[in-house]
């Protein structure tokens, strides 16, 4: 069941010039699953009218803690970056569908680009808890963009590409040597061109691939029909029929 809950900011940790990590607390945090997102009301300016959809990095419902990795992309996220410990935040959650969980024996690669590592972390942790052993590949610009490495390394063997070669292998994630291994299933979240490249790569290798989209949204609950993506079955709402889509359902390989 979806809820509207007031959270309290426990910590707001800047990670880079554009990335920050929020720890939020609410006594009655509902169950959330990997792939789902939250829609945050941002107070303080008439120019920030709509809620901001943010994917979930991690959640601990027993402790009432929600962890969000956020990139400053505009006025709304810039305001969120200024949040102080103790401030309240009104959040609509949990929203959207979840990643399809794989079979027990499947070999899995998770690919995260930029702030897209957030849902990949939550998924990797979920898969580990189910006895699976996913590998995690992240693609960033430079070594200074490699954030939360300790959190990532706990949940999966970590592979990395940087565009400038300052950390891991130089180049884009699709060129990483980890692809020499055999995988049965790929999950990906990141900038649109990266997801399309990964989807194409997986398609050519005949591997199933799910991606998490981040279209601009208004309501987040399937009422406004603003966030649609084109699928083989016509326009679908990213907020309710996504954000996770099997790339076969999208009109990407045409």
């Amino acid at each position: 069941m979806k809820k509207i809950i007031d959270f309290t900011v426990r910590e707001n940790r800047p990670l880079t010039d554009t990335l920050f990590f929020l720890t939020l607390y609410a006594p009655e945090l509902p169950e959330v699953a990997a792939g789902q997102f939250v829609n945050i009301k941002v107070e303080g300016s008439p120019e920030i009218f709509l809620r901001r959809p943010i994917s979930i990095f991690d959640a601990d419902p027993a402790a009432g803690l929600l962890y969000l990795l956020i990139k400053i992309a505009g006025k709304g996220t810039a305001r969120l970056a200024e949040l102080k410990k103790g401030e309240k935040l009104n959040i609509l959650l949990p929203l959207g569908n979840t990643f399809t969980l794989p079979g027990k024996e499947e070999r899995i690669l998770l690919v995260g680009g930029g702030v897209g590592i957030a849902p990949m972390h939550f998924l990797a942790k979920t898969l580990r808890q189910k006895g699976l052993h996913p590998e995690l590949l992240i693609g960033v610009r430079s070594c200074s963009d490699v954030v939360l490495r300790e959190n990532l390394e706990i949940v999966a063997p970590l592979h990395c590409t940087t565009e400038d070669g300052t950390f891991g292998e130089k180049g884009f994630p699709t060129a990483h040597s980890v692809w020499r291994k055999t995988f049965d299933r790929i999950y990906c979240c990141g900038p649109d061109p990266m997801m399309r490249a990964v989807a194409d790569h997986a398609f050519r290798k005949g591997i199933a691939c799910e991606v998490s989209l981040e279209n601009t949204m208004a309501c987040g609950i399937g009422a406004c029909l603003c966030c649609v993506t084109e699928t083989q079955e016509g326009h679908k709402c990213v907020c309710t029929e996504g954000p996770v889509f099997n790339t076969k359902a999208l009109k990407w390989q045409n």
Binding site: F49, L50, N215, A218, L225, C226, C227
Partner: peptide, 19 residues
């Protein structure tokens, strides 16, 4: 099917839609 994405733009104290 409605109009192609993008169909929405936030404005000061409001929004534009073209669903």
């Amino acid at each position: 099917e409605g109009n192609p994405y993008p169909r929405m733009a936030e404005t000061a104290s409001g929004m534009l839609n073209a669903v």
